[in-house]
Design a protein around this nucleic acid. Structure first.
Lengths: 195, 195
DNA sequence: ATGATTATTTATCATTTGTAAAAAGTTTTA
DNA sequence: TAAAACTTTTTACAAATGATAAATAATCAT
């Protein structure tokens, strides 16, 4: 990690306000608990283990959520610009998580302490709504991903992913393979086929 | 569908209040927009097509969300007692859905018009929070399901499902098979193996 | 209860994906 | 820049799952 700033807020609040308009008091309160951090390629943002107490938001770059299954590194999720990075199964349950977060490329993320954030919900209805809407978007993405994993072929899933964002080009193949639920070898075969 | 009542509220509000306590005004307002319906086995609760404008809550029984892919009936989701039935990809985006809802067994569900509900959010912070928490639980379930579909074997997924609720025993195998992302024939093989 | 319908199992063969190991290509770093 | 480290592709073989068809079992409607 190379930078750790109190935060140069303008751009992000433009985006936040476009999702749900915040009062100036709410904006000021939220600004107080946001910390901006920049990570280099492959930096670990949050290690595996412990309870998740942070909500991350990708300002710039790309990150992944990963875990180990039978010794293999599995990518569960990719987060791109203006998206949350959420380990919901821990953040919303208080249970420990076996998942970590890693920057894939040089990335700037906003780090928000979840307890402070949830505390703000009590005084600032508009902040609760903003994050409800952001989480809701993640929820919809997750439902779409199930449809994809449940009955699409690996090839269909790969082609679908290619269309989501050009950023995919920058992601190492091994991460993409496990994200699609297949091995690197399989993905390599699929790519040979597609060409 | 056999009953269509204005609603015999007590029990459900016990549950709702245990998730997030509601003021008596909020409770009264919410009661106004809840309609209780009872469906018989295999009844269609919501047909495929159209935009989803209803939030359902299973008071008793069991339902599934399904769609057709290449002419095959695919079960995407099961909802059991005290859980929402949500077609998030339509409800939260306003886009039409290709998914329907069917009662698996005789079931009593609460039907809530989503526009009326979202309207209530503006006056009743506690109602917004209640539903945020209910949706959040669905989101966590969805994330767990991805982990399952992404890298567990069909056999592991089947055994995992068996442990979630005894209600599974009542669900026809063909629904379970597609929910697990496999064919009926494969599931039958797995069951023969497990015994 | 009986026949019709629907659900489940079994069998066969084809296809997809996994595992392991090696080769080829790329990136990092001393 | 060269060596080392890492990533991607290829190959060969094994295992899991799919597709199809047919047989059996269970359920439903009259």
């Amino acid at each position: 990690m190379i930078r750790f700033l109190r935060f140069d807020s303008m751009m992000i609040f433009d985006f936040f306000n476009s999702v749900n308009n915040l009062s100036s008091e709410s904006q000021a309160a939220l600004e107080q608990i946001i910390i901006e951090k920049t990570y280099l390629k492959s930096d670990i943002i949050q290690d595996i283990g412990s309870r998740c107490k942070t909500v991350y938001f990708v300002k710039d770059g790309c990150a992944r959520i990963f875990y180990f299954k039978d010794g293999n590194d599995i990518t569960e999720h990719f987060s791109f610009e203006n998206e949350l990075i959420v380990r919901a199964e821990s953040l919303f349950t208080g249970k420990p998580t076996s998942k970590g977060i890693q920057a894939i490329d040089r990335s700037t993320v906003l780090s928000i302490d979840s307890e402070s954030l949830f505390e703000l919900y009590n005084q600032h209805h508009d902040i609760e709504r903003l994050f409800r809407l952001l989480f809701q978007k993640e929820y919809v993405n997750t439902v779409k991903r199930i449809e994809s994993l449940q009955f699409k072929t690996a090839k269909e899933r790969y082609e679908e992913l290619l269309e989501t964002t050009d950023y995919v080009q920058k992601i190492p193949l091994k991460y993409i393979a496990t994200y699609l639920g297949i091995t690197q070898v399989s993905l390599s075969r699929i790519r040979a086929d597609v060409k």
